[in-house]
Amino acid sequence: MPEALLLDDVHHAFGGHRALTGLSLAVAPGEVVAMIGLNGAGKTTALRVLTGRLRPTSGTARVLGRDPARLPVDAARRLGHVVGAALVDPALTVAENLRVAAALHGVDRDRSSSAAGAVCDRLDLGAWAHVPARALSLGNAQRLGVACAVVHSPSVLVLDEPTSALDPRGVVLVRELVRERAAAGAAVLVSSHHLDEVARVADRVLAVHGGRVVGSLDPGGAELERRFFDLVLAADSAGASAAASTRDAA
């Protein structure tokens, strides 16, 4: 099956800092792939490239086979994402934000209220439906952000740290939602620091370090944390050896 999300040998630098150094990954429809990595590993930069927010220095990015920086409307209708700030206006109520998100994602006007209501119930936001978003707690605001990204039932979903501010119940709600989307055939790419959560939600786990994918981990295996650090240390050792060889050759 062709990849719904693809990054191929993507490089990008911010000034002198090399944020992505040949990062490659692919996510197929119906699959949940998680990226884990230390702070500054390049996870969010990769997600920004995939959502069209950052044009990489080199390499290929594709969403449903199209360049995300110039995504046509038919592909955009099938994409949902939360990378950093969500599609939420703090001055609008929860219900208004959901209807606006539905409209901007291409849901017909007569269906936007029902789509907004359904996702509001699904993420248990009904009690705050008429509360301005600016009055929500951090966790409820994060749930609203995720709700706005899935209100149109996307077939491609990109989520950056979607459970970082959530309480245990919120974590379960978002995990179930992600699994439901994947069961419906969506390709889901999630970045996270929470290894336990990653183990529960992902079909595959990619370890990102130094701006590239340094290995793949089985989420079902034991000691995910130890295996992740083994990959990171191996990547650092390989990098140090390569640098030493280069110095010797010079």
Partner: peptide
């Protein structure tokens, strides 16, 4: 940073 959410929309 809210402008980042305006990417990849049908609008």
């Amino acid at each position: 940073g809210r402008a980042g959410a305006y990417f990849g929309l049908a609008t």
